[in-house]
Design a protein around this nucleic acid. Structure first.
Lengths: 156, 156
DNA sequence: TATTGTTATACTCTATAACTATA
DNA sequence: TATAGTTATAGAGTATAACAATA
């Protein structure tokens, strides 16, 4: 009878685990669905999320190598190379050789790339803007706090 | 001098707007990066996110038509059709004609599809499980609350 | 040998356009 | 005509394999 009356520590661990796993499932679904929705709302913008994310990083944090970019975006180097190729052909970034290491290539935003990020920062994501405006301040604070946690988790 | 001393209501609106736009940018970035990270952690699993999301819906909420599935996932019918084809060829769902409307096709998970969802529910997303276990209860509550808000926004 | 970048190629998931069948 | 599903095809973004150049 003991085992019924007194929850042992193993039970509590199992319970905590199932709570975490439930959150994992719920949270994964929520993020995946929002990501798809954002893509669906993106509309006629020629620059995709990946391109924008890279350009934004270069603008806000300065030049990087290809390897640094692919690591930061959690993508393989050949994938990042294609993204960088597109941005280079669009005149939004430029490649230069690293004088101190002939293997490396320094990738930096051009003036046009900086201008584009500044320009579009406010125009973008109108759909999400509308959704967020309709929330309460408390709900927005929840999302802001969640964003902080997400970034910390993702970069770990 | 007045305009400097007394903030007019227009200023307050502009301020609220910029706060929302800042959250939009931050939140979009966080979600996109977590989505990529989750994909990178997925590893050798042959079933992609879209396939799994559809199968999970069929298992947890019962049969649906193609149109219902494509609406739910915010995807166009031909895209969903390809996803459904893959799942059908893999024996995880089955199509049957709707007796009351010859145009419609009822899509339902097979026993094997149900078993697969049950099986993999616990094995999946190990990386995110670990990250969430390392958080405080308060942080997990924040993410759970954010998930609720995200789902509500996304389905609107 | 190890590392950095690159090219070639293929896979997944999405879209649009055009078609068939049914209501 | 309108709706549900489907096929054909294309595009974006990812991956792996193989290669060149440099450390």
């Amino acid at each position: 009878m003991k085992s019924v009356e007194i929850p042992v520590s193993g039970d509590r661990d199992a319970n905590r685990e199932s709570i975490v796993e439930e959150l994992t499932a719920t949270f994964t679904d929520a993020v995946a669905r929002l990501y798809r929705r954002l893509r669906a709302e993106r509309g006629g913008d020629p620059m995709g999320d990946s391109h924008r994310s890279v350009l934004k990083l270069l603008v806000s944090e300065g030049p990087r190598t290809l390897r640094e970019l692919s690591d930061h975006e959690h993508v393989k180097p050949p994938s990042m190379n294609q993204t960088v190729n597109w941005l280079e052909e669009s005149g939004l970034l430029a490649r230069t050789s690293d004088p101190s290491d002939g293997r490396k290539v320094i990738i930096a935003a051009t003036a046009r790339g900086v201008a584009l990020i500044d320009e579009t920062r406010r125009r973008r994501n109108q759909w999400l803007n509308l959704q967020l405006e309709a929330l309460t301040n408390e709900e927005r604070q929840t999302l802001a706090a969640a964003s902080t946690i997400i970034v910390r988790i993702t970069d770990s």
